[in-house]
Design a protein around this nucleic acid. Structure first.
Length: 456
RNA sequence: CUCCCGUUCGUCUAGCCCGGCCUAGGACACCAGGUUUUCAUCCUGGCGACAGGGGUUCGAAUCCCCUACGGGAGGCCA
């Protein structure tokens, strides 16, 4: 049995769409699963749209998701070049085969592929014109995902435009032949065109690869498949919003594929091991960012501290926190306090900023709530001495000291908590209060309590 | 207009190929309760689906047919 060779053949548009990403991912998974080769081929025949930046967006997105390619741009390989724009002579060679077999003809300056079969003309409602059709035998596609699909191609089609550029259907097939592609894994939107492709494979005397058409990803709401304009459609968005790449990749795997045993959060090694066409669904899947976020939160919680710290640092730095002036051990303690609590990395700054800077606002609703109960001045007054005098300043000593004062004043210990939290963070929620105060240290907490007391 | 593909909780899905183990399982979301100083986590429970109709069968989510709906393609776009 020969080696599996699969390819991802994107056209660089300047965006890395989530649907494309999943096609790439499924190809990559199949290659990894079978020990085959994953080839990246750039379909850059549209010269105006294809810029260097557009290519970089694509490569960057691939790398972010961890999809490395065995052959392609920057990787090289024996079947290059891997840019369609550089493969013209190969297309010419294959075109000659079709010409020699009499399977082409010129019309309106373009080169057409000739189907075999009886010809007739009829008015076509779609084209709004009389068109020539062919009574052509149906092509049988044994699709690895959808099973047997039969479809007859009924019209000749252009393979080289009048301006000399070969069209997608032709170059795609030629490249797959020339690159020895064994399995074509792509979106279902290509299923109808597959009959064209099979006709070309046959006319070129090439072996037809195994096709595997994966379902499409539908937009979150409303009709139709996801397009680049839709919310959440772009991979680079998730990178910018500091999503965990493993989580995004894991979620995309689950759109249209299932390991069949209720497992969802899986390591990439597990997914590679278990991925196969039998687990790919036939029905289209609707994208759901809520579920992605939930999975992402789970990944955040399980991140190793050094990895979390690195991500967190770059986010805080970008938000203007001068980490250079902050003790690393302090930063680490703060991050430990919040890793299990935040639901997404882009809420990190709001969750911890007051640990690093004094100029924070006081939540208006929280302030109202505090004023409603026992006078916050009284509450703070009762416990100020703890922060002024406590020799050993720790979570435990604070707790017992506050507890003692609470009992003396016939209150519950948590009567004091909202006020302290508001004074030291300006917020109504956050990390566990006592550990938080402990990490902040007396040198930060005491002045904040004092100034809050004056402010009241 | 034609052709192709699909249709299980709101969403992602398990079950379907090889009919009975399905009073249809899990996850996210939502709701209620518990844990918690708060928030988050965590725990418990709830809500909630076989698109419809015909067959076949002792028995159908599973097999067959029809209809409806959804998606895709039909380009000198990819």
């Amino acid at each position: 049995m020969s080696e599996v060779r699969v390819r991802f053949a994107p056209s660089p548009t300047g965006f890395f769409h989530i649907g494309s990403a999943r096609t790439a991912l499924f190809n990559w998974l199949y290659a990894k699963h079978t020990g085959g080769k994953f080839i990246l081929r750039i379909e850059d025949t549209d010269k105006e749209r294809n810029t260097e930046e557009a290519l970089q967006v694509l490569l960057e997105g691939m790398r972010w998701l961890g999809l490395d390619w065995d052959e392609g741009p920057e990787a090289g390989g024996d079947y290059g070049p891997y840019f369609q724009s550089e493969r013209q002579s190969i297309y010419d060679d294959y075109l000659k085969i079709l010409k020699d077999k009499g399977r082409t003809y010129e019309k309106d300056g373009a080169l057409w592929f000739r189907l075999e079969g009886e010809r007739y003309t009829e008015y076509d409602e779609f084209h709004k014109a009389e068109v020539e059709k062919v009574k052509n035998a149906a092509v049988v596609i044994e699709d690895a995902i959808r099973g047997r699909v039969e479809r007859a191609e009924e019209r000749d089609f252009v393979i080289v435009r009048s301006n000399g550029e070969p069209v997608f259907h032709f170059v795609n097939v030629v490249d797959d032949i020339a690159m020895g592609i064994t399995h074509v894994i792509r979106g279902e939107d290509h299923l109808s065109n597959t009959s064209k492709h099979v006709e070309l494979f046959k006319a070129l005397g090439a072996e037809v690869p195994v096709f595997a058409h994966i379902p499409l990803i539908l937009k979150q709401s409303g009709p139709g498949k996801m397009s680049k304009r839709d919310e959440g459609a772009l991979i680079e968005e998730y990178e910018q919003r500091s999503f965990i790449a493993d989580a995004v990749r894991n979620y995309i795997c689950l759109l249209g594929w299932s390991p069949k045993d209720d497992q969802e959060k899986m390591s990439i090694e597990t997914i590679i091991e278990r991925f196969d066409f039998a687990g790919v669904n036939k029905g289209n899947a609707r994208f759901d960012e809520t579920k992605l976020s939930a999975l992402n939160a789970e990944y955040i919680r399980e991140l190793a501290m050094d990895v979390f710290a690195e991500k967190a640092s770059s986010i805080l730095k970008a938000k203007g926190i001068n980490l250079g002036s902050i003790e690393e051990s302090y930063l680490l303690k703060v991050l430990e306090l919040c890793q299990g609590k935040i639901k997404s990395m882009d809420t990190l700054f709001d969750y911890v900023h007051y640990f690093f800077q004094d100029g924070y606002d006081f939540d208006a609703k929280g302030m109202q709530r505090i004023q409603k109960g026992v006078d916050p001045k009284v509450l703070l007054g009762e416990i100020m001495s703890i922060f002024e005098n406590e020799a050993e300043y720790s979570s435990e000593t604070l707790e017992s000291s506050i507890q003692a004062i609470a009992e003396a004043n016939e209150r519950k210990i948590f009567a004091y908590f909202p006020v302290i939290r508001m004074a030291t963070s300006g917020l109504t929620g956050g990390p566990d209060l006592l550990p938080m105060l402990s990490v902040m240290g007396r040198e930060r907490v005491l002045p904040r309590l004092q100034s809050f007391l004056e402010k009241l």
